[in-house]
Computed example of a mutant assay.
Amino acid sequence: MGRRLRRAGRRAPAVAANADGRLEVFALAPGGSALHHRWQEAPGGAWAAAWQPFGTAAGGAPRVVRDGSGRLTVAAPAPSGVAVFHRRQTVPSGGWGEWQHLFGWSDAAPALAPSADGRLEAFALSPGGARLVHRWYADPAGTWAAAREFGEPGAPLAATPTAAADATGRIHVFAVTADGRIRTRVQERPSGGSGPWNAFGERLVAPLPAGTPAC
Rank of each mutant, 00 (worst) to 15 (best):
G2L: 04
R3N: 12
R7V: 04
R7S: 10
A8W: 15
R10G: 10
R10A: 09
R10L: 01
P13S: 15
A14R: 12
D20K: 03
F26L: 07
A27M: 04
L28F: 02
G31V: 13
G32C: 05
A34M: 11
A34D: 08
Q40I: 14
A42S: 13
A46V: 03
A48H: 14
A49E: 00
A50F: 08
W51A: 14
Q52C: 04
F54T: 10
G59V: 11
V64S: 02
V65T: 04
G68F: 03
G68V: 07
R71L: 10
L72F: 05
T73D: 01
V74A: 06
V74M: 05
V74H: 05
P77N: 07
G81Q: 01
G81H: 04
G81C: 01
G81P: 03
G81V: 11
A83G: 01
V84W: 03
H86Y: 05
R88N: 02
V91L: 04
G94W: 15
G97E: 05
G97W: 06
E98I: 14
L102V: 01
L102M: 15
S106G: 00
D107F: 00
A111V: 00
S115W: 07
G118W: 07
A122G: 02
F123E: 07
A124L: 01
S126Y: 07
G128L: 10
G128Q: 14
L132V: 00
V133P: 06
H134V: 12
D139L: 09
P140R: 15
A141W: 12
T143Q: 11
W144R: 08
W144I: 13
W144H: 05
A145R: 13
R148N: 11
F150R: 15
F150E: 04
P153A: 11
G154D: 00
G154C: 13
T160G: 11
T162C: 13
T162A: 13
A164S: 13
A165Q: 12
D166M: 08
G169K: 14
G169R: 05
R170A: 14
H172T: 15
F174H: 15
F174N: 15
A175T: 12
D179K: 10
D179Q: 13
G180W: 04
R181Y: 14
R181D: 11
R181Q: 07
I182W: 08
I182D: 12
V186R: 02
Q187L: 11
E188W: 08
E188Q: 08
S194V: 01
N198S: 08
A199Q: 05
F200D: 02
R203Q: 06
R203L: 07
L204H: 05
L208Q: 13
A214V: 09
A214M: 03
A214N: 06
A214S: 03
